[in-house]
């Protein structure tokens, strides 16, 4: 029993070191993406922390963000979402699943000339509030919707 536990600990330790090495590698100048993977934001548990990790002070609720998704997802492993923002100067769109182990699922940077709307599919562990977080003109806005899940997507 104890032996197994040691192995697991060792394994995860190794992974962490690898992860560090990789994020250091990704920081190389001249790479296609300007910023490194926001590890802090992807480790947060709720909306307020995520906003903080993304560099904002707080977010206000907005009616100009639309979340298109099923109200009841039969399979939590694949839940489709479309987020559209009508807020002018939308810079980025993020999708948060509050009940997942880590809230932030994905974050999209929208350059000028690209529509402020993205579609993707995410995993949901169980019924949860879904929050679409939009950064526009330096400020953060959000809107929330509950999606019910009948079969979870994390347990396999």
């Amino acid at each position: 029993m104890n032996n197994d536990r040691r192995k697991v600990l060792k394994g995860t330790g190794g992974m962490a070191v690898m992860g560090l090495a990789m994020s250091a590698g990704l920081l190389k100048p001249g790479s296609a993406w300007a910023q490194d993977w926001n590890k802090a934001a992807f480790a947060t548990k709720n909306l307020a922390d995520t906003v903080k990790a993304m560099g904002g002070a707080g977010a206000s609720e907005s009616k100009d963000i639309a979340i298109v998704s099923p109200d009841i997802a039969e399979n939590g492993a694949v839940v489709p979402f479309t987020i559209n923002s009508r807020i002018p100067k939308t810079e980025s769109i993020a999708l948060l699943v509050e009940q997942n182990p880590n809230a932030l699922a994905a974050s999209f940077d929208i350059p000028a000339g690209t529509d402020a709307g993205v579609t993707t599919r995410v995993k949901m562990g169980r019924t949860s509030n879904i929050t679409a977080l939009v950064k526009a003109d330096g400020k953060f806005y959000y809107t929330t919707k509950e999606v019910k899940v009948t079969i979870g997507g994390c347990g396999g």
């Binding site: 492993a77 699922a105 994905a106 940077d109 350059p111 529509d115 579609t119």
Partner: peptide
């Protein structure tokens, strides 16, 4: 040569990820 969308994903994005967006120009 111009970036039209960049994204950062966490492990919560579904297996065999799908993504769609629109851009002008």
């Amino acid at each position: 040569g111009k970036v039209v969308l960049s994204a950062q994903w966490g492990p919560a994005v579904s297996k065999n990820p799908f993504m769609s967006f629109k851009f002008s120009g």
